[in-house]
Amino acid sequence: MTRQVAQKLGQALLVLLAAFTVAFVLLQALPGDAVLIKFLGSEMGLTAEQIAELRIAYGADAPVWEQYLHTLGNFLRGDFGYSIRSGVPVAQLLAENLPSTLWLALLALTAACLLALVLALLSQLEGFGWVRGLARSMPSLFVAVPVFWLGIMLIQVFSFQLGLVSVIAPEPWEELVLPVATLAVPISAPMAQVLIRNIDAVFGEPFVAVARAKGARHQWVLWRHVFRNALPATLTMAGVLFGELLGGAVVTETVFGLGGLGGMTQQAVANQDVAVLQAIVVLSAFAFVAISLLIDLLMPLLDPRLALRPAGAS
């Protein structure tokens, strides 16, 4: 048991190292380094010698492999270096911007799960054919909506026309409710679709016929037998979507003018702020790996067939 967990942890660390390495190689391969971009501008009027000195000061003249090991060592100690643009430690930038994005992403994921769940349950409602049909057509609609458009429309309707949510000097909850909705809707679509399809498939399984032959009614079968069997695939889906969520957060934060990783990433890309980008890539990879690991460890609880050691054989 512990051996398999250790194995999974090892794999996760390897993925992180790979992400770090790939990001490093790609960022180093960018034409021109950040020092050149920042100081080569004519308004500073630096000479070529002065720039060369600066490059030595920043360590940009060392061989690539040395820079790689150096940066890796720093990362392992939790030192992400300094933003070349602003001179502020990257760790400080992250501390300022990460919490709001993380909140946004987690709230959106929760909302998306709830939305998917409600749609899936409505799709199985007994006796209301039109509700079932509606619930089943929603995911296709949701997934077709572009995030930026949905954000703008939500602001238009709820803030400007209905005046329900203030966008100027908003309360903390007001600031988040529309962005969360914007992010959650497209994320919920694939989850709802997978959940509905799995529930339908499980209803066709022979063990459901056996449950009904025991005298169980629809709701009993749905909750006791179908639901838990339909859940694992949806959970896997949720993990994959979390990555998409981080990407979606960039657009959403821009549309709603929220501070966070979105704005930070955008600026870092515009300025080729290598240190910041490197940290963001590794952080995203970490989030992805952590979620996948969590799901891997949760799965056996949902499906005993995936248990690492056979249960009951003590």
Binding site: R217, H225, D303, G312
Partner: peptide, 29 residues
């Protein structure tokens, strides 16, 4: 109705299904 029949199923008549490998819920003891 299905509701009335479900009171009979299990008590007055029951089923032994064809394929035992798929006829038990895999996630419950």
């Amino acid at each position: 109705s299905d509701r009335r029949l479900s009171a009979l199923r299990g008590t007055r008549m029951s089923l032994i299904p064809q394929d035992p490998t798929t006829s038990l819920n895999p996630v419950r003891t």
